[in-house]
Simulated assay, not measured.
Amino acid sequence: MKLPEYVKRILGMLAVVTALTVMWSLSYWITETLYDAIHTRPHEFGRLLINSILGFFLFGCSVFLITQIKWVKNRQDRFLHPMIQAMKMMAEGNFNIDLSYYRNQFNDRGDHPYYKIIDSITHMADRLGEMEEMRQEFISNVSHEIQSPLTSISGFAHALKNDSLNPKERERYLHIIEMESVRLSKLSDNLLKLTSLEDDHFTLDREEYRLDHQLRRIILANEPQWTEKKINMDIDLEHVTVHADRDLMDQVWTNLIHNSIKFTPEQGTISIRAFAQTGGKVMVTIKDTGIGMDHDSRMHIFERFYKADESRNRHLGGSGLGLSIVKKIIDLHGGEIKVESELGRGTAMIVSCDTNQVTLNKGGEGEKDEQR
């Protein structure tokens, strides 16, 4: 018959009290015998101190001897050996560990030391396993992204050796090699950027500047792209001053505007809004009338190397790292980025930052213009 847990605890406490009583009695008998033998008896406080020290020593020795009993050691090894083996497996890179059987031996007693150790090892193995899967996926994605342009460069470079190629074909092959080389260069730059942003020692180079001026400059820098597709640019920018890393925020707005231009069909519309709200929050919205995204794409859009509907948009290029970089930069600034989109009905990227350094200039009510 299995004893209840509280009965086991009471019996354990009684066993400890009994052992202490026996050891203190033995200590008293030993010291009294010694005093009679040497015909000397210390002061009462000294005798009490000697008895206590000797009693603790005898109790410790008895506990040590009990742990050396074979059945006690076997019971300890039954739980310690699997935990040691589990840690050895993790050291070798195997995180598929199941210690549930041994954890259940304690009847889910969360206060037991072995239970806590087993629970910690299991949690650590799960987290390390997730990190290993992410690492393997990252390596696989990088390898795929590098292999694709390298294959094109190698294939078309080999084709250029054909002396029968006419100048027009040769020029087209050289253009493809150039474009694939640029793609490789951008991939390398983005990987380096992500690595630097995730460095624990990375610091933002903050400064105060006009956010509306920054957005207008980037919009004008991309004018050849949106004019080529005859896209309407609907711009409404309030006079907002922010305290942020100007270069990093340049990359945020550039990536978001590039994406909107890339996925918006000809004669579509891109709306860009920037305004300061009460409480020191600045909000920027970049909305397009492009192809949009489904629910699954919205859930994964900020993951590394994720490309929504890659088969349909392969010709648009990109490595799938741009929005990951955007998300990281916004996070470093203590902000938030959200996506609102429906398939076939466009996408809106909403960036908001909470900071006391955001100010709204009262000199104007904002600027609004529409460009084609």
Rank of each mutant, 00 (worst) to 15 (best):
K2L: 00
L3V: 06
K8R: 03
R9P: 08
G12P: 03
M13V: 07
T18C: 02
T18D: 07
A19Q: 10
L20H: 05
L20M: 14
W24F: 15
W24K: 11
W29V: 06
D36P: 01
P42H: 08
F45H: 15
L48V: 03
N51E: 09
I53K: 04
F59A: 12
F59D: 03
C61W: 15
S62C: 10
L65I: 12
I69F: 00
V72K: 09
K73F: 06
D77F: 09
L80I: 12
L80Y: 13
M87V: 15
M89A: 11
N94Q: 05
L99A: 06
S100Q: 06
D108H: 13
R109T: 07
D111M: 13
H112V: 07
P113M: 10
K116E: 10
K116D: 00
I121K: 05
D126C: 06
E132R: 01
I139S: 09
S140Q: 08
H144Q: 11
I146G: 04
I146V: 08
Q147H: 06
L150M: 13
T151W: 09
G155E: 01
H158L: 14
K161E: 01
N162H: 11
D163A: 14
R170T: 05
E171L: 15
H175L: 14
S181Y: 09
S185Q: 15
S185K: 08
K186V: 13
L187S: 03
S188P: 11
L192M: 12
E198N: 13
R206S: 08
Y209V: 10
D212R: 10
Q214T: 03
L215M: 15
I218E: 09
P224E: 09
E228W: 01
K229A: 08
N232A: 00
V242W: 05
H243L: 00
D247P: 00
M249F: 04
M249L: 07
D250R: 14
N255A: 01
I257G: 06
F263H: 13
T269V: 02
A274I: 04
A274W: 02
V284H: 00
S297L: 00
F302K: 01
F302W: 08
F302M: 03
Y306Q: 05
G318W: 13
S319Q: 02
K327T: 12
K328I: 06
I329D: 03
H333K: 04
H333R: 10
G335L: 06
G335R: 03
K338G: 06
G346F: 00
I350L: 12
I350W: 11
V351K: 02
T355P: 01
T355L: 13
Q357P: 00
L360C: 04
G363L: 13
